[in-house]
């Protein structure tokens, strides 16, 4: 029996009386890769925010690593939608990734060589070695997305929460992001929010459709693979797909 990491039972959230999530019951165990799909406004991001302790639930129960959400920041890596911060912010890729070590540090503590080593490791994993000194405003969409994943990895998480990691990225970049995530699933528990239904089927171990209520289903690797194959040309940069 694998350890359970996320447990939700009849979880509901409402904003000013409007139900955004209604009666969600599901669990995520160690090593799982849960793909959350569903329409815009279906509550996918809200669910992630509840799991992170950023949003309060109104009914039911939710535990993350056996405790209340938000109580184990050092064990969770979070990759937010990249639209929500200022790309003109004067920060280099290295400093952005280093921010992922925040959850391991106390107030006033400065980053040390261990933090820098972990940040460099995450930068290597995501293939950003040549861009470490680059200002984030000068990165392409896909590079910035990888930098955000590197930031989450730098904190050595056990659970990785990804919110639309491929939104507004061109199709070629999408596959590199998913290749990266596929590597990570060997050592991490992952919850991935996306509307790329066709792409996630071949990677995930569980799929859930979220539209205020939640419906679990088995992934369909065969059709997922075929749907993915079709648009990728033979001489693609990723021949092993």
């Amino acid at each position: 029996m694998r350890t359970s990491i996320i447990e939700c039972h009849q979880l509901s959230v409402d904003f000013d009386g409007v139900k955004v999530l209604d009666g969600l019951t599901f669990s995520v165990c160690e090593g799982d890769f849960l793909g959350l799909i569903g329409p815009n406004g279906g509550g996918k991001t809200t669910l992630l925010r509840v799991l992170l302790g950023l949003e309060k639930h109104s009914a039911g129960s939710v535990t993350v690593f056996g405790g209340l959400p938000g109580r184990s920041p050092g064990r969770i890596g979070y990759v937010p939608q990249r639209l929500f911060f200022d790309r003109e912010f004067p920060i280099s890729v290295r400093d952005l990734v280093l921010m992922g070590r925040l959850s391991k540090k106390n107030l006033f503590q400065r980053y040390n060589h261990l933090d820098r080593a972990k940040a460099d490791e995450a930068i290597c994993t995501t293939g950003l070695e040549r861009l470490t000194e680059r200002r984030i405003g000068d990165l392409s969409g896909g590079e910035l997305q990888r930098a955000l994943i590197a930031r989450a990895l730098a904190g050595e998480p056990e659970l990785l929460l990804l919110d639309e990691p491929t939104a507004s990225i061109d199709p070629q970049m999408k596959t590199t992001i998913y290749d990266l995530i596929e590597q990570l699933k060997e050592r991490l528990t992952i919850v991935l929010v996306t509307h790329d239904i066709s792409l996630i089927n071949r990677y995930v171990t569980k799929v859930a459709t979220l539209n205020v209520t939640l419906e679990l289903s088995e992934p369909d690797p065969v059709s997922g693979r075929e749907r993915l194959r079709a648009p990728v040309p033979q001489n693609s940069a990723f021949p092993n797909l």
Binding site: G53, L54, G70, P73, G74, Y78, P80, L102, S103, G155
Partner: peptide, 8 residues
């Protein structure tokens, strides 16, 4: 938001 998630 990320700062809050990191426990700040």
């Amino acid at each position: 938001e990320y700062a809050a998630v990191s426990g700040l």
